[in-house]
Design a binder for these strands. Structure first.
Lengths: 189, 189
DNA sequence: CTCCTATTAAGACCAGGTGATAACCTATTG
DNA sequence: CAATAGGTTATCACCTGGTCTTAATAGGAG
């Protein structure tokens, strides 16, 4: 009897993990119990109501997406002198790592370095043309990666930039980027 | 008079662009008009109600975050033979491009290629050690990028993989990746 | 002064809940 | 067998943040 109930509650959790946008009504139908029971179960499991769940997902992801993909630079720029050097910090979050190993996926280090290199170039529009990168030490969940980019040469519209990324003073990543300026810094309307 | 109204509506749009989680009540206070007016304005601008906005953000980002950052592979794998080759498709979305130029940020191509290379390796845990990449043609918003990865050599735990990415049969990106297997495919618990 | 536009207010309704109370099975236990 | 307890369900009042409709009001422009 109580076994029934516990099984149902597990199912409820699974259902909501798959699709957090189910109403009590829908859950009641899926689990073949009354809405009242679903409410009690939610209370017991301290699962908030649909609107709260929706709101949480929305606001959590809103800021995350804005911070992660919506901006021009991955990581937070803490120092920048156009055409000379730039520094950014990236805090490694849960969703950037391999689930099994909690090791940062390589492309995030690349993204941080690449976007920093592009930001460094003194041009309105700059694109990456070439990159050689090397990963030295795996970066783990929770680490703070400090990337330093330096312009090493500039021939016409092509800039060579070296980015070194460190965690606790140890170099974890190094990249050489060739960035091409498409539009020189002239009219920045 | 109508100028007043249009100015207010612009403001309303700006407010919601900054914070889409404002209720009509809050908007009314901020703009110093009645709630009724806010409703009319929303109707005129066809801005949905708070809950709809929240829902949209939540579900859009839910799938997006899951698809973009939460998975092991960036892009959708459409063919894979472990240790031989792999193919994936990436559809370029609004949030992956530079706003000014609508050109895909370089790290997305890298991410697609890198994660495909890692997926290709016949090991439980594999990490990127080195990558040399080249960007040939800018990829634009709406493009579908097809990446083909092929294993070219394998010495001990180090695999060399070449990834070529094309849009409309034209090569836009090419990368050589060295991937290191940390844990051989033996016990896949 | 009158007309017109913009604004506001008022009332009924809706979804998706919360919270409390009471009724109802069913299964065991004295 | 009846009493009791555990789990389930029904019912009712209430809440937020809206919807839609209708009506009243304010403030110029002609």
């Amino acid at each position: 009897m109580a076994a029934n109930r516990n099984a149902r509650r597990k199912q409820l959790q699974n259902l909501l993990a798959e699709d957090p946008f189910l109403t009590d009504q829908q859950l009641a139908e899926l689990l073949e119990v009354s809405v009242a029971t679903i409410r009690l179960d939610r209370m017991a499991l301290s699962i908030p109501e649909l609107r709260e769940r929706t709101k949480t997902i929305a606001s959590k992801n809103y800021s995350k997406l804005k911070a992660l993909e919506g901006t021009e630079v991955i990581g937070e720029i803490i120092d920048l002198e156009l055409g000379k050097f730039a520094i950014s910090i990236l805090s490694v979050q849960d969703d950037m790592v391999f689930e099994r190993t909690q090791i940062l996926r390589g492309h995030h280090l690349f993204a941080q370095a690449n976007s920093l290199a592009v930001a460094l170039v003194n041009a309105n529009v700059a694109l990456t043309a070439k990159a050689n990168v090397r990963y030295y030490i795996p970066v783990k969940n929770g680490d703070r990666v400090i990337a330093k980019a330096a312009l090493v040469s500039e021939k016409g519209s092509r800039s060579e930039i070296i980015v070194e990324s460190k965690v606790n003073q140890e170099m974890v990543f190094r990249g050489e980027f060739t960035v091409v300026a498409l539009e020189k810094e002239s009219d920045s309307n």
